[in-house]
Design a protein around this nucleic acid. Structure first.
Lengths: 214, 214
DNA sequence: TGTACATCAGTGAACGCGCGTTCACTGATGTAC
DNA sequence: TGTACATCAGTGAACGCGCGTTCACTGATGTAC
């Protein structure tokens, strides 16, 4: 018979074995339920089934845990944007950008907790090099798509690719943040889905730049 | 000589006289320093110079206080958007929309604490009729500007005004949230100001709809 | 293959602290007459 | 104008609670030989 302490329900070994990952999972669940600010470090320990001192073996504090949630979120985010932009062979720049927009919203919809940690962590994310690098990777997908678009246009009307990428990011983030999030800032009945709204917005914007389908 | 209790520094009367407003001020300051989730109800009392029980005379809890901060924020926000859209006589629809965009960013820049309470309160703002009404007023300014634009275009290319208003909102919020906020999600050196970025984005978008200056 | 030992992940008890909330109260304000 | 009284904003003490953090410890794992 296993002698089980109060924190060991359902665990057979003295060591958890996977506590770091379990904490990240628990954090995602808790963020999904109550937002990045809605729980304590002790709750994470409880959710992972360990004593309140155990988490300190893996993250110095709660913010470091959330930052890692955000970093991993950016990794998945970048990968999904990249897949959308390139999967199925070469795409016309306009089509690639539209697919990135869809992937952007799909991520915000499927992983609202990660999205919240990434964009509304509740504390400054500066000076976290790994996190900044991951976020840079995600933006890189948008930047390359914008460069590709810019390069496909006549030289005399080529818009600055970085600016186009920032517009893409801003519009995608605006739609996601206002109309998709866990606590979407706007409690509004849309006459269309966020996906339709973003697609229409990007299409209008890109048409003006001279992009065309095909 | 005034007998001053521990909570009465600098106050002469037993009654505060303005506690409700003092609490709203304190909340704005604290949100500005640490975000909507970064302080306790007791801290608000301390900052206002009253005992920890006093706040309950004015707001049932911390969330109600923040919701009121957000509501008043939306009131000022709506007023400033309206002023931008209409001050100085009738404007061409395109010019009105650009001015709204500037006013949007100006608000986010000047009142980051209110903006955070409005768009990242940290708890659901639903079922607060007064707050929803105030937010509706702010959006109304954008909706009317979009209707005005739509009405100025030839009938065969009139875009749905509501959609245009939502695009305006999404792009403005995206730029503000990513590049202006207290804890802007993106720690990125922009090659331009957020104002320039938004103005360029709106111009590209509106040109596509057929809007022209003058 | 076995054994000694280093490593280190997790325990559980302990601590001081500040929070949220309640309560009977106090004292200032305003108003009816 | 004065006075009695109702109202109500703010007090301060009290409470139980859970948090964050530390500490010496324990037991599992892995590795050198």
């Amino acid at each position: 018979m296993t002698r089980a302490g109060p924190h060991r329900r359902g665990r057979e070994s003295y060591h958890h074995g996977n506590l770091r990952e379990a904490m990240l999972d628990a954090a995602l669940t808790l963020i999904g339920e109550r937002g990045p600010a809605g729980f304590t470090y002790a709750e994470v320990a409880r959710a992972a089934g360990v004593s309140p001192a155990a988490p300190y073996r893996h993250f110095p504090d709660r913010n470091a845990l959330i930052a890692e949630v955000a970093r991993q979120g950016f990794e998945r985010f970048a990968a999904e944007l990249e897949t959308a932009a390139t999967a199925g062979g070469p795409l016309a720049p306009l089509a690639a950008i539209e697919r990135i927009g869809h992937a952007y919203l799909a991520f915000a919809r499927r992983e609202p907790a990660a999205y919240a940690a990434m964009f509304e962590p509740g504390f400054p994310l500066e000076d976290n090099a790994a996190l900044l690098a991951a976020s840079e990777n995600a933006f890189g997908v948008m930047r390359r798509a914008a460069q590709s678009l810019s390069g496909s246009l006549p030289q005399n009307i080529r818009p600055p690719a970085l600016m186009v990428a920032l517009h893409l990011w801003a519009m995608s983030h605006g739609v996601a943040s206002l109309f998709v999030g866990r606590i979407a800032g706007a409690h509004r009945r849309l006459p269309m889905t966020p996906e339709e709204l973003l697609e229409a917005g990007l299409l209008i914007y890109l048409q003006s730049l001279g992009a065309s389908r095909g």
